[in-house]
């Protein structure tokens, strides 16, 4: 709930109607940047998971998962202006849902006990973050 509200400005910034390909692309780029930022933050927390408290991790991950999920569904709702844009949309929604999925999985692990393999989780998140940044770099700004 909290995170949904906090994501509201982010969503509002990304989901206003897009007119042309360049515009659509830059919005997709901004969305990817925001998602990469969230993923990097989760990675920081996961790397240091042993030193943080459980309620804190839980709150932080819930917040991020909702934020990522919100961005994903909101962006999917914008009509792409062209065939090329459809491909862009497929790529960005694929990446953000993967991110949301991963964070949700981590959240479940925290809820149950603790993160099983923080090292691997962090590495996966780092790789995903790199892909998001690379995607953002390809888009017109």
């Amino acid at each position: 709930m909290v995170a949904l509200l906090m994501a509201a400005p982010l969503v509002a910034g990304c989901a206003s109607p897009a007119w042309d390909d360049a515009d659509y692309g830059s919005k997709a780029g901004a969305t990817a940047e925001a998602a990469a930022s969230s993923v990097a933050l989760v990675r920081l927390a996961v790397e240091n998971e042993a030193r943080l408290t459980r309620p804190y991790l839980q709150t932080l991950l819930t917040e991020t998962a909702t934020e990522l999920g919100g961005v994903d569904s909101q962006f999917g709702a914008v009509q792409p202006p062209s065939q090329a844009a459809v491909a862009v949309r497929a790529e960005i929604t694929g990446l953000t849902s993967e991110a949301a999925e991963r964070v949700r999985a981590l959240l479940n692990e925290v809820r149950l006990r603790e993160i099983r393999d923080p090292g691997k989780a962090a590495a996966d998140l780092a790789a995903l973050g790199d892909r998001l940044r690379a995607f953002a770099g390809e888009q017109p700004s």
């Binding site: 982010l10 925001a34 933050l41 943080l52």
Partner: peptide, 22 residues
């Protein structure tokens, strides 16, 4: 350096946790 943009209270307290743990 990590290009993270902070936007919530939960995120902004993280540095203290990283420095001194629980």
């Amino acid at each position: 350096p990590q290009m993270i943009e902070v936007g919530t209270l939960g995120q902004m307290v993280l540095p203290a946790g990283l420095a001194f743990g629980q």
